[in-house]
Design a protein around this nucleic acid. Sequence first.
DNA 1: GCGACAG
DNA 2: ATCTTGTCGC
Length: 238
Amino acid sequence: MAVVVAGKHSWDLTPREAAALQRRLQAEVICEDRIGAVEYVAGVDVGFEQSGRVTRAAVAVLTFPGLELCEHALAREPTRFPYVPGLLSFREIPAILTALQQLRCSPDLVLCDAHGRAHPRRFGLASHLGLLLDLPSIGVAKSRLIGDHDPVPPQRGASVALRDRGETIGAVLRTRAATRPVYVSIGHRLSLATCIDYVLACTPRFRLPETTRWADRLASDRDRRRRARSTSTATIKR
DNA sequence: GCGACAG
DNA sequence: ATCTTGTCGC
């Protein structure tokens, strides 16, 4: 069954209106486990073309827990909202929805390269997307937006609480030893403990061949440009 | 007023 | 997000 967008609202908003919408929708996020059997898990990421005016969204659907690639989709759309810290979803979600709607199967869980509840108004991209799709979702960000935390012990699986204004808003989790930890937070329809379990289940110590192949495909354009640049630089140096 | 600020 | 230089570790 295809992905269905359950919720809808205007995307033609000013930054001020967008923040007001976040404050309203934040109350509808479910922070308890309302999740069934997980057979397919989707990973969502976006990038921008060199002009900066085109947003590209990539979605990969993997089997769970085997993590074999079974479907993917790409979308290119004009960027119609500026990057404002805290309003990332208004820039990225329209293209993500386009990509998701091309899928033939609907995932049971969505992992996002962004924050969920670890957000100033408790409504990061992962929560926004999860609510629109009415699907369990998790925020997995590479860097901090808000909150404070203690140092994270060095071994895989170690985590510490991410706190803001006296509240636990997420966890800082090591998915691999000797790399930077990731910032995990509830997107929608999951408890924080369950979010951590799924992130660890989706980030095994050794990359599967399918995962590597998919990452290569996503990075191909960027790598091609980088290679061309370093080649020309090397030529100039000589 | 100043710093901080997912991607 | 992107770009760069130097440095470290496998």
